[in-house]
Computed example of a mutant assay.
Amino acid sequence: MAGFGEPGSAPVDAAGLTVGVVAARWHGDLTDHMLDRAVAAAQACGARAVVARVAGSVELPVVAQALARRCDVVVALGVVVRGATAHFDYVCRSVTDGLTRVALDEGKPVAHGVLTVDTIEQARDRAGLPDSAEDKGWASTVAALDAALAVRQVATSANQRVGFGT
């Protein structure tokens, strides 16, 4: 947790947009809460949520891609806690690379709401629980919706000149 620099996560006006939320069941006590917060954020922004569940974080990208094909934005939620082997590194890279690929291939915002932490206590501090310092389910959803609005704005201003000399 950086503890500084967060742009804020106040609701945006995303009326009419659909958010696909895919959440891992691994560490369900945390991901269930993160999912609830993501759905609440979508509703607060005026968007509709479609929810899918998968076993673990490695399965998030493929379902995120399926959701990206029918939703305006996708939010992927999971928890990966470092262990004593290199498995943590492989899972984190696979999930990050996969979610990035989905966003670029589908041209849709895909929020990376996967907690990659050293301890379960760090995960609890980011999961949006009543005593948590951060709320990644909420913040990831608002960020994805904000990005969708920016993409929409860029698309609608495509005929306008931007940059130097305009």
Results as ranks from 00 to 15, higher is better:
Ala86Ile: 13
Val151His: 13
Arg126Asp: 01
Ala52Gly: 05
His87Tyr: 05
Gly128Glu: 11
Val91Met: 11
Leu67Val: 10
Gly20Ala: 04
Ala64Lys: 03
Val81Lys: 10
Leu149Thr: 11
Gly107Asp: 01
Glu59His: 05
Thr85Val: 12
Gln65Tyr: 07
Val19Ala: 08
Trp26Asn: 00
Asp125Gly: 13
Gly56Tyr: 03
Ala133Val: 09
Ala76Asn: 04
Glu6Ser: 15
Met1Arg: 14
Val81Gln: 07
Thr141Arg: 07
Arg82Tyr: 11
Ala139Thr: 07
Val12Phe: 01
Gly8Val: 05
Ile120Tyr: 14
Ala103Leu: 02
Ala44Met: 09
Ala47Cys: 11
Asp146Cys: 02
Leu129Ala: 04
Leu115Trp: 01
Gln65His: 09
Gly28Asn: 03
Ala55Phe: 12
Phe88Val: 03
Ser57Phe: 13
Pro11His: 10
Ala55Gly: 12
Ala49Met: 07
Asn159Trp: 15
Arg37Asn: 14
Val54Leu: 06
Asp135Arg: 04
Val73Pro: 10
Val62Phe: 02
Asp135Gly: 07
Val91Gln: 09
Ala15Pro: 01
Pro109Met: 09
Val21Ile: 10
Val54Gly: 09
Val79Trp: 14
Val58Leu: 14
Val21Glu: 01
Val39Ala: 05
Ala66Cys: 11
Ala64His: 03
Pro130Asn: 01
Ala47Arg: 08
Arg48Ile: 12
Ala147Tyr: 03
Gly83Ala: 09
Leu30Trp: 15
Thr156Ala: 10
Phe164Val: 10
Ala49Val: 07
Ala148Gln: 09
Ala49Ile: 06
Ala155Ile: 01
Gly8Met: 08
Ala55His: 12
Glu6Met: 12
Val154Asp: 07
Leu104Arg: 14
Lys136Asp: 02
Gln160Asn: 14
Ala40Thr: 00
Asp72Glu: 14
His112Phe: 15
Ala40Arg: 03
Pro130Val: 00
Cys92Ala: 10
Val62His: 07
Val50Asn: 05
Val91Ser: 08
Ala49Cys: 05
Thr100Pro: 03
Thr156Phe: 04
Thr85Cys: 08
